[in-house]
Write a protein that binds this DNA or RNA. Structure first.
Lengths: 110, 110
DNA sequence: ACAAAGATCAACCAAAAGGTTGAATATGCG
DNA sequence: CGCATATTCAACCTTTTGGTTGATCTTTGT
């Protein structure tokens, strides 16, 4: 529901949150597992996940005592349209994107 | 030079700054003229322009006593690639972009 | 020379961001 | 039941952000 540009861009401005998104690109994850590679408290990661959820970039579903996080890439569409309006960039450059993932993902990437 | 994703997304997270970018899409502008439609001090706008400059999103060139601001859309490329990596969105939707401009631009749009 | 215009600087302020720790709340398991 | 696990809450702290105002500096026009 909340998919305002302010919120989305602000959520994307933090490297921890971008890394989390990249991790969720591979698979849905539980909060504890999302937190594992980071050198910060679980509570801090929990807050980051709230921010991502409010931006609509992920969704969280509780099953049992585990809360699963799922990427919601559609939330990026509006922001993507906004940005492309300025640049007329090449459609999709997956090579460049994978270079980002290598840099931004925690080293244990599979 | 500085074109780091943190800086670019943070710069885009503020509605005043996005509006400024949209204004500069039409034409280069002097700082005073950029500030005119906003209900905030010139100093505040000057700071916003510094942030946009540090993000590489605009450049500023002083000619005489006037400092001209110019959009630098290339700075958006990296961020755009990053975002598209998630979504595989439709290439460019100019209609959607112009809808943004109508919402975000100060009403005196020409 | 002087005054006005264009823009930034410096000091300040309130609110938001990003983190910590320790307690609380559910849920699952033996 | 009773304990461990999964996650959040609450209070707190520090730094950053976004704004203000008044002084300053440079350039232009008369």
């Amino acid at each position: 529901m909340p998919n305002d540009l302010d919120t989305v861009f602000a959520a994307l401005a933090d490297p921890t949150r971008r890394t989390i998104l990249a991790m969720l690109l591979e698979d849905d994850m539980a909060v504890t597992d999302v937190a594992e590679p980071f050198e910060m408290s679980l509570a801090a990661i929990s807050k980051h996940l709230v921010i991502l959820t409010k931006a609509g970039l992920i969704s969280q579903e509780k099953r049992g005592r585990v809360k699963w996080c799922k990427l919601e890439p559609d939330a990026l569409r509006a922001a993507s349209v906004w940005m492309q309006g300025f640049g007329q960039f090449e459609p999709v450059n997956l090579d460049a994107f994978e270079r980002f993932l290598e840099v931004e993902l925690p080293s244990d990437e599979a």
